[in-house]
């Protein structure tokens, strides 16, 4: 079985601060991390590999530094990692990103063989768009299962998977043929600690490089210039201010609080 995981390196959004004077993000000193959802995607992929045999391949599109994120995936037990990096991709929106990753993934299929399970995170914590996974799945014309919380059954002989996803109202369980594309929730699994052999292997592993040199690309679909969406402006939202501290006796504060909340009270018939 071959599993391909799409991972993104992101600035740790929780450490990004806003300079309210200039209206810009302060990104200096903000560490780049593996997008948290992908940690769980890799965890699941490695778990499935250990149970069913096969291999796990990782791909990321990004600048050379993104190989750090790839190393992290290798230290979690992935077998091979590809960095798709080319200046032509700079400024890609989600449509252009899904195009680049689609071509990168096709190259990986050529080099590593057919993929049975595709994984991406639910969303990246920097952009929060949750579109790249569905975009890649659409380009491959694969069945898509978003918001995955559980793989209930994997049948490699009969080539199907049964999986549970979150919906607006709860959950649903779906049967889909393999190959299939998942975007994953964090509650999919609990992260394990990387065993030492994985860490050693990751240290030694070579990151494979993909770019316009070895991946056939339609330049008309790449980068800022060919991204349909453009940023008109970016600005900082109004800073939330500390509001009123409710004061008085304990009972006063209870009453005041109840008054604020009362409009939300469920109506009783």
């Amino acid at each position: 079985m071959h599993i391909l995981v799409f991972v993104k390196q992101v600035p740790d959004a929780s450490q990004v601060r806003v300079n309210y004077e200039t209206g810009t993000l302060i990104r200096e000193g903000v560490p780049a991390i593996l997008n948290p959802f992908e940690e769980h995607a890799v965890e699941e992929a490695v778990r499935l590999k250990n149970e069913y045999g096969g291999k796990v391949t990782i791909i990321t599109m990004g600048p050379p530094q993104a190989s750090e994120a790839l190393k992290q995936c290798l230290s979690r037990g992935a077998d091979k990692a590809y960095l798709l990096s080319d200046r032509i991709f700079a400024g890609s929106d989600t449509l252009a990103t899904s195009y680049a990753l689609y071509e990168g993934a096709r190259k990986i299929v050529e080099l590593e063989g057919d993929v049975d399970l595709f994984f991406a995170g639910k969303q990246a914590i920097d952009g929060d768009t949750a579109q790249t996974g569905p975009g890649i799945a659409t380009r491959f014309n694969l069945p898509l299962i978003t918001y995955l919380i559980k793989i209930d059954e994997l049948n490699l002989e009969e080539k199907y998977v049964i999986a549970t996803r979150l919906t607006e109202f709860g959950q649903e369980t779906i049967k889909a043929p393999i190959p299939v594309f998942f975007t994953v929730e964090e509650s999919l699994n609990i992260l394990s600690h990387s065993p030492l052999p994985y860490l050693i292997k990751a240290e030694k592993a070579e990151i494979e490089l993909l770019s316009g040199k070895n991946v056939p690309l339609d330049k008309e679909q790449c980068g800022l210039k060919h991204s349909p969406t453009m940023v008109k402006k970016a600005f900082t939202p109004e800073k939330r201010q500390r509001g009123a501290t409710l004061s008085g006796t304990f009972d006063d504060v209870v009453s005041q609080t109840a008054d604020k909340i009362a409009p939300f009270l469920k109506k009783v018939s």
Binding site: T94, T129, Q131, G135, T138, R139, T146, S227, P228, T229
Partner: peptide, 23 residues
Amino acid sequence: ATTQGRDLSGTVATALRTGLTAD
């Protein structure tokens, strides 16, 4: 931008090769 709407719009926009601004 519900679970259903997010699932649908990402695939529709890609299939139509148009831009989508999420959320």
